[in-house]
Design a protein around this nucleic acid. Sequence first.
DNA 1: ACAAATGATACTAATTTAGTATCATTACGT
DNA 2: ACGTAATGATACTAAATTAGTATCATTTGT
Lengths: 135, 135
Amino acid sequence: MNLLTRQTDYAVRALGYMMRRPENNATAAELTAALKIPRPFLRKLLQELTKHHVLRSRKGAGGGFELARDPEKIRFSELIEIFQGPLRLNHCTFRKKPCPNKKVCAMRRRIGCIEEMVINQLRATKLTDLVQKGE
Amino acid sequence: MNLLTRQTDYAVRALGYMMRRPENNATAAELTAALKIPRPFLRKLLQELTKHHVLRSRKGAGGGFELARDPEKIRFSELIEIFQGPLRLNHCTFRKKPCPNKKVCAMRRRIGCIEEMVINQLRATKLTDLVQKGE
DNA sequence: ACAAATGATACTAATTTAGTATCATTACGT
DNA sequence: ACGTAATGATACTAAATTAGTATCATTTGT
């Protein structure tokens, strides 16, 4: 059981790296060298972050990526959602065909409860909580 | 992002069904009919539960499965572990090669914290919480 | 113009999850 | 004893998800 995929993990590392630089920026090349993440994969992931306005990018020579916002305003939950879809711990496998197991749905309620807790935690966790500036 | 696989989901349904029967038992055939889960898949899963002493089985005519314990003593966490391995929300992808990203490991601490909360909740959740007897 | 950067997109590979098939073994009922 | 109804063990295939690659287009600074 693993809540985080490698993409999310990489994304946090990359963002963390940028956060610790004075200008909050870096190029894909730098990040590849520093973090040992396969370059094309990293690039794709950075583009994704740009699309979702977590990063801003500049093309061309001297270009690169920079944080689009204060790291304090980048939520862990947001990153997870970008790479792993909506935050839910369980989606009823029978959702389409009107669920024939109403009886079991105490499960869903109970899980919903745990789910809510987790989501609240993930929302409350900011990039700055994941990566300490000084470290 | 999905915390539960279908196997775990099915397992809860199957156990819930058995829990609501007077003898806490059923055959694979009954369960297939009642829960609309593909039979060979269900059988495999029931065998797994038997191996882990959540169920007891009896072979031969008139045989079948029964809960090996009071449903109050079957933890949700245990079921997840059986089908999805150890409860961890994140395992450092760099664990082998001594992690070159000590800097980022605030992430690990923070995630560890959320992880612990989730695990505690899952441990505290019993089969009886997932499936109400009367329902 | 050229080099250094990202954007877009389509593809392959690896891993995990879901599901199938088959034969062996056990136990009840006659 | 035999047939039938059940699970045990195991090996396999299929589908879905995740990880990673490749390529070409576009932009920008010098």
